[in-house]
Each structure stands twice: as structure tokens, then as C-alpha cells.
Design a binder for these strands. Structure first.
Lengths: 347, 347
DNA sequence: TGTTAGCACTCTCCTCTAATGAGTGCTAAC
DNA sequence: GTTAGCACTCATTAGAGGAGAGTGCTAACA
């Protein structure tokens, strides 16, 4: 059996109506709401075919039909057509993107908030990967007797500071020397790349300040590498999920929100199998908590390099056209903002 | 009518049983579970009295009784007796508190996590108030052409850094001069305290660097004062609320979680009417979302000065004895940790 | 051969009713 | 003052019946 034009029209009608109403769609409804020029009986026949093809299913005998995952997939891939963004939404995004921002975190959280607001769904934003940042420059500043402020400028421009305990017997010159050696030897390397030999050199050059070096290395370790693993994902509008009829069930809500508290599953959800825009529908997600959910995600870039991703999570019964348009435009806007504003924090 | 010993025993039994089962308590149940040496009929008579006194109420005619807010209040104030902490919990808290921590934020989030874990309720932790911190010292470090890193050491020891745009024509000496003037004039003042005259002085002394000063002041404003308003409250174990039978209702959950997203109401909930430990029961909370909730909160100190608060939020039907013991011990442990470890970030 | 009207059938959802059971208040006896 | 007994109340549950939506099938029609 083949899909013909009428089947496509009917499938599209079913998906659209189900997205709008969350109720199983009957042949009569389609005949009434969509002007297909055929009777409900004909539509019924076609629906039987569509069911056989696996695009729709019945919750129970003699209920209307709802789209299957495959049905949504076919809809997204073949039926949806060009996604248009409403002028209103477009304007809102553009207005936001012209705001001046200096911290990368602000950009990310703003993006997250905006996404969930525009879609009335839950947004996921993965900020620029800090992990790969390398050592740039080190400064020491006076703080208190026995302690100094160690300021680390990473190669990606992020500045961090930590208090380091030093002995009482270190002079400003000693510290300057330590900084000089570090700056010279380590520029451009992350700590994990620092060879033993390099450390050895530093140690031997600065044998007097061994205590300080140990402390400094510990701090550096945390700054340069520690953050790699648990890059947080910004969640927005989680409560929107509670408005979805598919989450009327409290146990479902509980297990969903539990997953929200973890990072790894969300990252898996967000990170695309390929560059650009991805649509993951229902069971295509591996996690059972998301079996009834779809994710629209997309990566964004700086200098042609992919550095993060944004996504929207909602029930499979979501307005794919609208959400895809929003996510798409948002990543483009984000890429633009990052290229223009150059806030600190991305590589 | 007066409370006598038997009435007290019965009220205590009702509260304890209701806390344990979440079911209205009948006279028969009390006679069976608690050995009061009287028959259900007698207990019924006493319960009628307790109801008249306002300590218990009936959800509907011929259901068992549940404690009213006043009943819980009487229980907490007069019936509960000394709260003992289980050795197990004590050990857990002590083990946590010996861990080395260097950032105040870690302490706060650890505390929050621990509280919600031990109580299976929701924890609220208000970190040390940063607001009152004053200007301590300013440093400039080279960053990129046209930009410098402004490092601000606040009087409470917190170090923050920001990138500031400067013109191309500023030398290191110029910057040093700016820093010197700021350090000299502003030490110990928060920006809101800076008199116009003082600013005038700075301006006239540094007329050449006006552009830099404007930028610096803007940053300082954010650092010194901006954080005062929206000191975040750390929430832990919000999902625990979903396990409480009183939150079976999805609408209730929705409105509760909505409040969780705001800061102001939570702060109101947490900030005590008096120093030390506070118990706020049911309707004593002003917000309608918390009408069925109680809050056990307590302040913690450093150097004898109250600087923050922790609290536990749960249904009015909570195990007051246990929770009070935990919160009490926790604040003491926290006070101790802060006094000993002196992590940065408190005043 | 494709389309349509008609019709019996299925299954959910809602409502109504009756039975159950927990718990009370009252009364009278101890 | 305490208790046993009893009638009464009311939430909860299960079951029955009806309404309604929607289907699949059949037969007639173009």
C-alpha cells in the first residue's frame, strides 16, 4: 500500500487536529473541520489504511485515531511544509537579542526563559562548553597576611579568582616569579595536558615555593578541568509540563521532574546526532520518562564552531511547526548575539 | 473548660497518629493504639471537648478528627517534650560538617541537600547576606587591548572580577592612579553611602579617565548593591512534596511550585519573627499556597551576628519533633562550621 | 472501481443507586 | 465519671444503565 495525496491530507488533518485538541480524532471530525470533499465513510477507509501503515493508532476499539510516533515523524518530514515564525514571536526574539549582555550566563538563562515562554513548553539550554578552555595567564594580588588572590585568565577569556594560602615568608617578588614561570610554561595548555616533565621543570625552578605551587595547582585543577564534566543545563518552564494533559498523572510528573534534576539524561536528550536542527520524537528517545515527549534541538556556533545547544521539550503532541520555527530562529539569533557581543565565557 | 492531663494525652495521641498515618483519627483507633486505660466512648467525650476548644476538627460529620492549626500549636508548645535527634542523623550531620569547604555557596547547598534528605521534606536555606558588604580594595589587571580586569575585594573578603572597557590611551600608571584614588576614598563604604561630594572629588581628581570611572562605578554598583535585593534562597528536595498525600492534587502542586520559583515569598517564609528557632504552622503563614504547610526555621550566626537562616517546609502534618531537632542541630553545626572554616562570603 | 449511506456493534464516560464501613453523638445503665 | 449500646451520618466503592462518539461492515450507487 502506498501513501497517496488523499492519505497525506488525512494524516495531516489528524495530526493537526490532535495537536490542537489532545482528543482522538474521528472520521466525522475530519470531514467537518477539514474540507476534503469526501464523506466520513471514505475517510474511515483511508484511516484503516493509515493504521495499517503504522501512522496512526486507536487508543481502544471505536475511539478516534491518534498519530503514532511514525505518524508524527512522517508529518514532520513530509507534510509540515515550511515553518513560519509569527511576526510577533520574531519581534520578541529580536528585541531580546539586541539587549546588551556581558555575561555568557545571562545570555543562556535569557535564552532559556524566552524559549519556554514562547513555546509554553520546557526549554533546555546547554551553555558554551567550558571544558576545553586552557590556561591563559596568572596574576597574584595581595589579600591578607599569609593569603593571596590568585587570578586566572583562561584562554577563552573567562576570569576566575581563588584565595590561596601561602607561607608568611613569600614576598611579592617571589609571587611574581611563580606567576612568570607558570605563564611561560603553561600558556595554552589545560592542566590535563601538562606533562610531568613540565611540572618537574616548574618545581625545580621554584623549589622554594613548593607549598604555594601545590595549592595553586589544586586550584588550577578545579578551574581548568573540574568544570568539564558537569556543565549544567539550563531548564526553563518546567512547570509548563504540568499544563499538558498528558501529564495529568502525578506519578508521571514525579518521574519526569526527577529526571530534570539530573544532568546526564538531559544532556543526552539535547546533544544532537548531527549538526543543526534535530527532531526527536517519542520513543526515539531512549529514556522511558520521555517516551511521550519530543525534543526539538539545535546547535549554535561561534566562529563557525559548534559550542552549545538549545532545545525544547514537550509532549509528542506538540506544535512541531511553531516550535521548530522558534528554535531555528533562536539559535540563529543566538549565534549572532555571540558573534557580535562576544560575552566572556565561550571558547 | 480546661485542658487536663487526659485531654492532653488524647490530643497528643491524635496528633501523633495523624502525623504517622495522614488519616483522620477515630476514638477506637486511639483506644487501641495508645494505652490510655479508658474506653472509646470516654475518648469520644473528651474529643468533643477538644473540638470545642478548637484543637481538633472533623473533615465531615462522623469522620475521625484531625488536629487544627491550634492543635498543632499546642502540641508543639506544650506536648511535644524535648526533641531528640537520632544518633544516626546526628552522625550524618557531623560527618558532613567536618568536610573541608572553601566556598560559602558549597556550604549552603550542602546544608540544603542534607536538610531535605534527613527530613524528606523541602529545605530552604538563605545564604549569608551579602548586601551589606562594603568596598574594600580595587585592583586592575591587564586583559586585552582596550579592556582591563577590575578585581574588587569586598570588606567581607569576597573577591569579584569584571571586565571593564577602557580607552586605548590609558596606561598602567593611569589605572594605578584610578585604583589608588578609589581605594583611598571609598574604603569601607558601600556605593549607596558614597556621598555626591565624594564622587565629585574622585571625578575632579581623575577627570582624564572619566570614561573608565563611569564603567567602574557601574560595575561597582552591581557588585556592592545589586546583589542585596535578590539574595537567592536555596531550595532542596522540592520533589519530596509530591510524596505527601496532601499534595495529590495537581493544581495544588502547580501553585506550590510556582511560588517556589519566586524569591520574595520564600524569604518571607524563612525570615523569622525572632532570633533562634521558629515554628510557623499552617494558616500562620500569610500565603494561601502555604496554608496547609508548616515551616521550621532557624537563624545561624557568625561572630555572634545573625547572617542567614535555614528552614524546612512540609505539610502541617509533619513530624515536628524530628524536624525541629534536625533544624536546631543543623544551625548549630552550621554556625560552628562557619566559625571554624571561615569560608569566604560572609560578613 | 471508488464512494457513500445505513446500521449494528464496541467501548468509554457519566450518573445513579445501593451497599459498606468507619466513626460519631446520645442515652441509659453501671 | 465511665461505659455499652444503638441509631445515625457520610465518604467511599462497586455495579448497573444510559448516552455518546466512533468504528467496521455491507450494500447500494455513480
Amino acid at each position: 500500500m502506498q501513501m497517496d495525496e488523499r492519505k497525506r491530507k488525512i494524516l495531516r488533518a489528524i495530526v493537526q487536529d490532535y495537536i490542537a485538541t489532545a482528543e482522538p480524532v474521528g472520521s466525522r471530525t475530519i470531514a467537518r473541520k477539514f474540507d476534503l470533499g469526501v464523506s466520513p465513510a471514505t475517510i474511515r477507509n483511508e484511516m484503516a489504511d493509515l493504521e495499517e501503515l503504522g501512522f496512526i493508532e486507536q487508543p481502544y476499539t471505536s475511539a478516534g485515531r491518534i498519530p503514532s510516533d511514525a505518524g508524527y515523524r512522517y508529518f514532520v518530514d513530509c507534510l509540515m511544509g515550511a515553518q513560519t515564525l509569527s511576526d510577533e514571536d520574531k519581534e520578541i526574539i529580536e528585541r531580546e537579542s539586541t539587549k546588551k549582555i556581558c555575561e555568557i550566563q545571562e545570555v543562556v538563562s535569557q535564552t532559556s526563559r524566552l524559549l519556554s515562554e514562547l513555546t509554553s513548553l520546557t526549554s533546555l539550554v546547554l551553555g558554551p562548553q567550558k571544558g576545553k578552555s586552557a590556561f591563559g595567564k596568572m596574576h597574584f594580588l595581595p589579600y591578607q597576611p599569609g593569603q593571596v588572590i590568585m587570578v586566572i585568565v583562561k584562554e577563552n577569556g573567562v576570569v576566575e579568582n581563588h584565595i590561596v594560602d601561602v607561607g608568611d615568608n613569600l614576598t611579592a617578588e617571589d609571587l611574581q616569579k611563580v606567576a612568570d614561570v607558570f605563564n611561560q610554561k603553561m600558556k595554552g595548555y589545560s592542566l590535563s595536558q601538562v606533562k610531568r616533565s613540565m611540572l618537574h621543570e616548574i618545581y625545580s625552578e621554584l623549589s622554594r615555593q613548593r607549598h604555594l605551587i601545590d595549592n595553586a595547582l589544586e586550584m588550577l585543577d578545579a578551574i581548568l578541568d573540574g568544570s568539564e564534566e558537569d556543565e549544567p543545563i539550563y531548564l526553563g518552564g518546567t512547570l509548563n509540563m504540568l499544563n499538558q494533559p498528558e501529564f495529568r498523572d502525578l506519578d508521571k510528573v514525579k518521574s519526569l521532574f526527577k529526571v530534570f534534576e539530573e544532568n546526564e539524561p538531559l544532556k543526552k536528550l539535547l546533544l544532537p546526532r548531527q549538526e543543526g536542527l534535530n527532531v526527536t520524537i517519542g520513543g526515539e528517545n531512549t529514556l522511558k520518562e520521555f517516551r511521550d515527549c519530543s525534543v526539538i534541538s539545535a546547535t549554535y556556533k561561534v566562529n563557525g564552531k559548534t559550542i552549545g545547544a538549545v532545545g525544547v521539550l514537550g509532549p509528542t503532541r506538540m506544535d512541531y511547526g511553531k516550535v521548530i520555527a522558534i528554535v531555528d530562529f533562536m539559535t540563529k539569533s543566538l549565534t549572532e548575539v555571540l558573534a557580535r557581543g562576544k560575552p566572556r565565557g565561550y571558547k
